[in-house]
Amino acid sequence: HDHNGAKVRPKVIEKLREGGAIALVSDAGTPLVSDPGFKLVHDLRQQQLPVHMSPGVSAPVMALALCSFPSDRFQFCGFLPPKSAARQMVLAQTAEYSGVSLFFESPKRIEKCLEDADRVCPDVQITIARELTKRFEEVISGNAQELLQEIRQRGGLKGEITLAFWPGAARQVDVDDERVTLALAEAVQSMSPAKAALEVAKIFGLQKRQLYDRAVALKKAAK
Results as ranks from 00 to 15, higher is better:
residue 206 L to S: 14
residue 113 C to T: 12
residue 144 A to S: 14
residue 125 Q to C: 04
residue 16 L to D: 13
residue 161 I to D: 05
residue 39 K to C: 07
residue 86 A to H: 09
residue 212 Y to F: 13
residue 171 R to L: 11
residue 136 F to S: 08
residue 208 K to P: 09
residue 3 H to R: 14
residue 152 R to L: 10
residue 176 D to V: 00
residue 2 D to V: 01
residue 100 V to M: 04
residue 141 S to N: 10
residue 155 G to E: 06
residue 124 V to S: 07
residue 19 G to S: 08
residue 104 F to C: 12
residue 167 P to E: 07
residue 205 G to V: 04
residue 94 T to C: 13
residue 56 G to E: 10
residue 70 P to M: 11
residue 8 V to H: 11
residue 140 I to F: 03
residue 151 I to S: 08
residue 38 F to H: 15
residue 57 V to H: 03
residue 220 K to M: 09
residue 196 A to F: 00
residue 166 W to T: 04
residue 77 C to V: 00
residue 28 A to K: 15
residue 161 I to S: 04
residue 173 V to M: 10
residue 8 V to E: 14
residue 43 D to P: 00
residue 222 A to Q: 15
residue 52 H to N: 12
residue 94 T to R: 11
residue 182 L to Y: 01
residue 194 A to V: 07
residue 7 K to F: 10
residue 18 E to L: 11
residue 196 A to E: 02
residue 111 E to R: 08
residue 140 I to H: 02
residue 193 P to K: 12
residue 134 K to C: 10
residue 191 M to T: 04
residue 179 R to I: 02
residue 174 D to G: 14
residue 120 V to I: 13
residue 28 A to N: 12
residue 161 I to H: 04
residue 168 G to N: 09
residue 174 D to Q: 14
residue 78 G to D: 12
residue 14 E to F: 03
residue 1 H to N: 15
residue 165 F to A: 11
residue 68 S to G: 07
residue 49 L to C: 09
residue 65 A to T: 04
residue 63 A to S: 06
residue 122 P to S: 05
residue 101 S to H: 06
residue 205 G to Q: 10
residue 193 P to D: 06
residue 124 V to H: 03
residue 124 V to K: 04
residue 41 V to N: 09
residue 81 P to E: 11
residue 178 E to M: 08
residue 167 P to L: 07
residue 30 T to A: 07
residue 108 K to A: 10
residue 26 S to C: 03
residue 161 I to Y: 03
residue 98 S to T: 05
residue 221 A to V: 00
residue 182 L to C: 05
residue 68 S to A: 14
residue 129 A to L: 02
residue 50 P to E: 14
residue 197 A to G: 13
residue 81 P to K: 05
residue 154 R to W: 01
residue 42 H to G: 04
residue 109 R to Y: 08
residue 184 L to H: 05
residue 167 P to F: 03
residue 194 A to Q: 15
residue 142 G to E: 11
residue 104 F to T: 04
residue 18 E to H: 07
residue 75 Q to M: 12
residue 6 A to P: 00
residue 146 E to T: 06
residue 74 F to Q: 06
residue 70 P to L: 12
residue 121 C to Y: 02
residue 9 R to C: 03
residue 63 A to T: 05
residue 151 I to M: 09
residue 91 L to M: 08
residue 203 I to Y: 11
residue 157 L to N: 01
residue 126 I to V: 11
residue 147 L to S: 05
residue 83 K to R: 15
residue 185 A to W: 06
residue 201 A to Q: 08
residue 41 V to R: 13
residue 144 A to N: 09
residue 200 V to P: 09
residue 216 V to A: 07
residue 125 Q to H: 05
residue 5 G to A: 14
residue 69 F to K: 01
residue 35 D to R: 09
residue 142 G to P: 03
residue 113 C to G: 00
residue 162 T to D: 08
residue 4 N to E: 13
residue 51 V to W: 11
residue 173 V to N: 09
residue 145 Q to R: 15
residue 189 Q to E: 15
residue 128 I to R: 10
residue 157 L to K: 01
residue 16 L to C: 05
residue 75 Q to V: 07
residue 80 L to P: 00
residue 147 L to W: 00
residue 75 Q to E: 13
residue 175 V to I: 06
residue 130 R to D: 10
residue 79 F to D: 12
residue 124 V to C: 13
residue 65 A to I: 00
residue 162 T to P: 09
residue 196 A to H: 01
residue 73 R to Q: 15
residue 2 D to F: 00
residue 142 G to N: 08
residue 126 I to L: 05
